[in-house]
Design a protein around this nucleic acid. Structure first.
Lengths: 226, 226
DNA sequence: GAATGAAATATTGGATACGATAGCCCAATA
DNA sequence: TATTGGGCTATCGTATCCAATATTTCATTC
């Protein structure tokens, strides 16, 4: 039982495409924190009018990727160490809770979905594309939580995650960290498969906390240096 | 130390005003769940063009008040009992956590702010305006949590709250419930003032849980009837 | 020389008009 | 009956203006 049964051929509005374009730039690091996004520049770049650009920026603001100030435009939001702590603390509350709910309701199909997500993640490590790795990492997490049937909480988690997404590379880049994360994913999945809610929750919490600690310490180093 | 030092003279864009207008209609019950919002109608009603209406609807979608489907327009989102459980469970995780953080950092000024919010709430009960009461209820909650300096979590809570805001009337309308809520607020504030983090957190959790239970059971009655 | 204040410029916010596109209903057809 | 194929309607998108505001530049004043 899954929350998001996506249609195979999804019709995209221009606004949605622009939003994806800008989000990719931000997450990929092309637009660093503090970067001014000029509506006209994006519009010209993509050959669209300013209106869908504005509407895309509104959506991105809701996701926490940019900050819009009236008549001053959109700026790529910067993540301080404090922000990272804030975001990860919220995840640390929600994810372990949701995974327990998920285990209580999940079907064998859900387990199979999670296993597939885990395998996709494993395969991506071999290829080593960091963007893809980030995406599949989150896909695994959502696969675990999806059977909880908590669309509102999942939406919240989505924004929490995407706000910090860019900075995951700080943590996920080194090969050593990747193999550590993979082993943790495997352990989490194993407890999940056995429907051991307490253990899954504990491992997931530790997994997220470790990632948080790593990112926060990196950000603090950056702030001390810069 | 407060998270949101709002400017006294705030310039409003048309989009923001439209968003407030529609949100008020939804929260006030003028637009019930499932109600189709027609951009052109709103635009004509307010004497503005459709563009700020569309952008306002985008913002409201991010807050969970409406659902937009491409080329089919915006519909006031309906809250199922499951949705309410989802929303309140998330609040139940975040609010007790944040209030502990708040107590750890708060100044005497913050305590004074919370006390003022409490007094405003008390005064509103005498007047008995339900909309105002809902607003001041939430103002009290945010006053408690604001010193935590967790803007991201606070933003999440804001959306969680506003999504369920309309249905608070189910719970807050009867006078008996109001005096109960008031007493709970007083108890929470008293523990807060004494910087008793554990007790404040416990009382706050119970306060939210009680409200949740009341609303969920009312919604379930409604779903069974309808 | 520093602070104030007033143009000038750039950018966003908004209005209007028009066209394109996607759902939806329903009659016509096989 | 099931399907097809119009119309109808409302949203989505563009183009072109104009308005409002933030920032910068520059002159003025003390």
């Amino acid at each position: 039982m899954s929350t998001s049964p996506k249609p195979l051929l999804q019709r995209q509005t221009v606004t949605a495409m622009v939003a994806e374009y800008i989000a990719a730039k931000i997450i990929g690091g092309d637009y660093p924190g503090g970067h001014q996004i000029r509506q006209e520049a994006i519009a010209a770049e993509l050959g669209v009018s300013r209106i869908p650009v504005r509407e895309a920026l509104l959506q991105l603001e809701a996701e926490g990727l940019v900050v819009i100030r009236t008549h001053r435009g959109a700026v790529v939001s910067d993540l301080s160490a404090d922000d990272a702590i804030d975001l990860f603390d919220a995840r640390l509350l929600l994810e372990p809770f949701l995974v327990k709910k998920a285990i209580a309701r999940m079907s064998n199909q859900d387990i199979a979905n999670a296993e597939r997500a885990l395998q996709d993640y494993e395969a991506a490590i071999a290829r080593g594309d960091p963007k893809e790795l980030s995406r599949l990492n989150w896909a695994f997490h959502t696969a675990l939580l999806d059977p909880s049937m908590r669309p509102r909480s999942m939406a919240v988690l989505q924004t929490l995650y995407s706000s910090a997404d860019r900075y995951l590379r700080l943590q996920i880049e080194p090969l050593k960290a990747q193999t550590k994360a993979l082993q943790e994913h495997r352990d989490i999945f194993e407890a999940y498969r056995l429907r051991d809610a307490v253990e899954t929750s504990r491992l997931l919490k530790k997994h997220v906390a470790d990632a948080a600690e790593e990112i926060v310490s990196q950000l603090k180093r950056g702030e001390a240096a810069g």
